[in-house]
Structures are given as structure tokens and as C-alpha cells.
Design a binder for these strands. Sequence first.
DNA 1: GTCGTTGCAAAGATTTTGCATTACC
DNA 2: GGTAATGCAAAATCTTTGCAACGAC
Lengths: 130, 130
Amino acid sequence: MPRKRHTQQRTVIESILLNTKHPLLPSEILEIARDELPSLGIATVFRALKDLLSEEIVRKVSIGTDAVRYEGKRDHHHHFKCVDCDNVFDLHSCPGNMEKLLPPGFELIDHDITLFGRCASCGKEAGKQC
Amino acid sequence: MPRKRHTQQRTVIESILLNTKHPLLPSEILEIARDELPSLGIATVFRALKDLLSEEIVRKVSIGTDAVRYEGKRDHHHHFKCVDCDNVFDLHSCPGNMEKLLPPGFELIDHDITLFGRCASCGKEAGKQC
DNA sequence: GTCGTTGCAAAGATTTTGCATTACC
DNA sequence: GGTAATGCAAAATCTTTGCAACGAC
């Protein structure tokens, strides 16, 4: 298979994913990247994501039944989605010991946890916009 | 708002969801329902699902980043997906105490857990089909 | 200069909506 | 008979693909 080339587009898309602290939609990546590359197209974003996935630099995640988002691979973490403002937050603790949920003979490789609720801003002031 | 009518279509779609032991795609619901109602359209399936969701008879679920599926509401449970055979299993225990993962000021409403690994059949015999 | 990559537009795939007709009550 | 629900087709989304032009090396 052909060798990969280093392009501005891939560099910008990769650094957005590695520097953002929450998972992004392809459309959000496009919008952010256009600050630096105004003519960037959405097809290039999808093609870059496909490559970054196969290089295991990024991960696909889905929060509830929302559209699929992408995040740079970082330390193990989970997600919280606010039901009022829809923002997604990383959670850096983990209950662990998921093996106890398994039926006998099942082997655990990985797990996803997503919490839903109200974030601190939305909880504090009922009418406040996040 | 107008009163709901009891139609053949809704009855069939609801009973498929309540009698199936794993989450279904809209297209799978359509295909099964057409055994009884050959002229059923996909739009009717989506409209029925929307109503069943708002009546809290069914639930949307996504397993990893697969397409969204629908399942009849049963007791609180989570899912295990086998990375070899792709089958999805219900898990009837739950670690609970998810509040401890929350940052201060955040309020918990609900949570999803999905485990990934190898089911008993796939673990036992490497080459076996589930 | 070669050939992988890009941006655009068109094509798929999935879900929603508009509207005339059907059928529940 | 009145009117909500249906089935079809068109529209709206989201993602992928084809292709001529571009740009990394």
C-alpha cells in the first residue's frame, strides 16, 4: 500500500483532536479547522478520521444515541452528558471491577460508561444558558 | 392533542418489540412486520417508534458506535457485546453508586454501561462460530 | 514528475415530512 | 362522518465515492 503524505489538512485535524478535551462531531472538527484552512471540505475530514482510526490515534465514541463523535486517544475515561445543555464532559474516575457483571465464562476486554444528568451550571440556575 | 387510534400497524410493531429479546434496527422491525402487513412502509415504523418512545414503552439503545436500535422496556439492564461473534447479551447486574464518578455540583439522572469482550462460546473454542 | 490528497459535487444511506387516501372510532 | 394514521414520494441529514486539479516529496 502507498505511503502516507504529511499534509496541512491532516496535521490540523489531528491536532484539533489531540488538543480538545471532549469528543467532537465531524461537523465540529470541520468548523474549527476552517479557522486555519478556510477551504477545507467535509470529505477530507472523514478521510482523515478514517486514517487516524486505523493508526489508532483517535477513537470513535457515541454518547447515548447521539451521532458518533471522535476523540484523541487519551488515558482511560468516561463521559457525562448534560440533559439540559447537551454538553459532554470527560470523567476521569472509573468504578473498575466490571468483571463482576459478567456471566460465567465471559471474558472482559473493555467497557464504556456514559452518565446522564445535569451539569453544575445547569443545576445551579434553572434558566441559565451553558 | 388528538387521541391515539389503535391500528393494526402499531399493534404489530409494538408486539415485535416486546417479544424480541435483543434490540432491533428499524429496518429489521419493518422486515419482520411485513410478514403480517406486506404493504407496511418504513415511515410508519419510524412514526410508531416515536410514539412508543414518548409512551415509554420502548427505548433507544446504541451498542458501541453501531446504528441505533430499539428494544422493549424491560427491567434495568446493561449490554455485553462479543468482539468475535458480535452478539449482544443482556447483563442483569449493575455496579450502582455511579454518583462517585461525578464532578462536584453535577446531578446524576441515568447511566449506560456497555461491556466488550469474548462470550463463553467464543472464549472456549477459538475457531467456533456462535 | 509522480502519484497520494484535496475539494467539489454526486451518490448512498438513513430518517423525517407533505399530502392524498384509508380506516378507526 | 370526522379526523388520525397510513403509504408513497420527496426532502433533509449524514457519510462515502468519483474525478479533475493540486501539492508533497
